[in-house]
Write a protein that binds this DNA or RNA. Structure first.
Lengths: 230, 230
DNA sequence: CGCCGTATTGAGCGCTCTCAAGCTAGGTGG
DNA sequence: CCACCTAGCTTGAGAGCGCTCAATACGGCG
């Protein structure tokens, strides 16, 4: 059962659970090949030059990135508890990115072939698979927003939902650095810092280091959607 | 056979062909519900509030967009011959965007349920389906590029491949307006125009209105990847 | 306690936007 | 067939947002 760690700590939610456990029998259906317990800043060991596994983040947070021709790191995305990493690699047939844990993280390795075989047997599971990958097509749509404030506000809203899939939280720890946020949003860490101060001065959020509280959720949504309050 | 129009004009390629015709028997497998012959600027009729079809662009070009809270149009993507529109809507259960033809375009409407049923029967087809949707996850990755010149160069390279899937072309007609390109890349039409003149002055491309020729492909790739030549 | 990665804040610059004016091409109607 | 008309494109000048560079402060970890 993928949402149960080896030390029997039970986590609430994994989008991959329908593939791992039968609703009635609670029997495992999709075997977890390996389970990684990554420390903060530890890299996820992805096979070179061949795609063969999907990775379910059971608990924690990861970033994926790759190094550009000019040597700069480019962050492609963040993955949190219950999310699946690896769909992008199906097309290329290999993982054209690296992944690093942002906090201590538990990851389940799942064979893509067994995954396909399992969805073959159950139409409902295949629909769920399509649902999950379609969901990923919709992530990061706010990267198209124009201003830095808009993009950053949308990013915070994204975190409220994705860090706690079962119940959105307005109080949480930001797991990544200002640099990572900036890289992902196409901004500099200085700009992220300035946006934090600006939103705090507007009494929309409260920030202490990694801890953030959203005090005016609706105002934040308005900023994210481009409706500025003067 | 989905890559054959009603007037018997045969087009070279459609990524959905494996679903429509059996390689050996050439028999139709996935029925095309409706075929739309859209004139330039004509909207594709998408069902409201329910997702139930995928749309294969048999020939032509479309843009998808949606209207932001502040009333502005935001272009989400372009779709060309052989590409499939609709995967993003699986997640939300509805089409949260509109689609408009950029040129005269032929579109095949395919039932999502029959599509799922067909992939159930053939593992190879399901893998192909996953391959196609994974491909879409990788589109537009260059939107993260920093400078306007980089993004525009990458956009041109994208067009060389996607406008002619069988054989990349360095001579082609740009099907969309400067405004559409700018909107998609997060730039203004003026900036697009300026980038065109700049690349032309560098003797990397030649542009006359909609007609473009890429005269130095490698130089364009270098610009797209951030390696500037001084 | 001291170190180093991370974060904040400020000053000045540059890329892209905004606004505006002219230009081009294609379509329409007389 | 031509004059007009309009949407789209080009080009220029000035403004502003976010970047660069730099100095300082903070905090986790040994």
């Amino acid at each position: 059962m993928a949402n149960m760690t080896q030390d029997n700590t039970c986590y609430d939610y994994c989008s991959f659970m329908p593939f791992c456990a039968d609703e009635k029998t609670q029997q495992a259906r999709l075997p977890v090949k390996r389970q990684f317990h990554l420390k903060k800043k530890e890299a996820l060991d992805l096979p070179k030059n061949k795609f063969q596994n999907l990775y379910a983040i059971q608990n924690g947070a990861l970033k994926t990135y790759h190094i550009e021709a000019d040597g700069k790191e480019l962050i492609r995305g963040f993955y949190f508890s219950g999310e699946i990493l690896g769909y992008e690699a199906i097309y290329a047939g290999q993982y054209c990115f690296s992944a690093i844990a942002l906090t201590d993280t538990i990851v389940c390795e799942i064979s893509y072939d067994s995954f396909i075989a399992l969805t073959q047997s159950k139409p409902a599971l295949q629909k769920h698979a399509m649902y999950l990958i379609s969901k990923e097509l919709n992530t990061g749509s706010y990267l198209a927003s124009v201003t830095a404030e808009q993009r950053f506000a949308a990013f915070l809203l994204d975190l409220t939902v994705r860090l706690h899939p079962l119940k959105p939280q307005i109080n949480f720890d930001i797991p990544m650095t200002r640099q990572d946020i900036g890289n992902y949003l196409g901004l500099t860490p200085e700009t992220i810092s300035r946006m934090m101060t600006r939103l705090q001065k507007k009494n929309i959020i409260t920030i202490h280091h990694k801890k953030i509280q959203i005090t005016q959720l609706e105002a934040l949504k308005k900023i994210a959607s481009g409706i500025e309050l003067t």
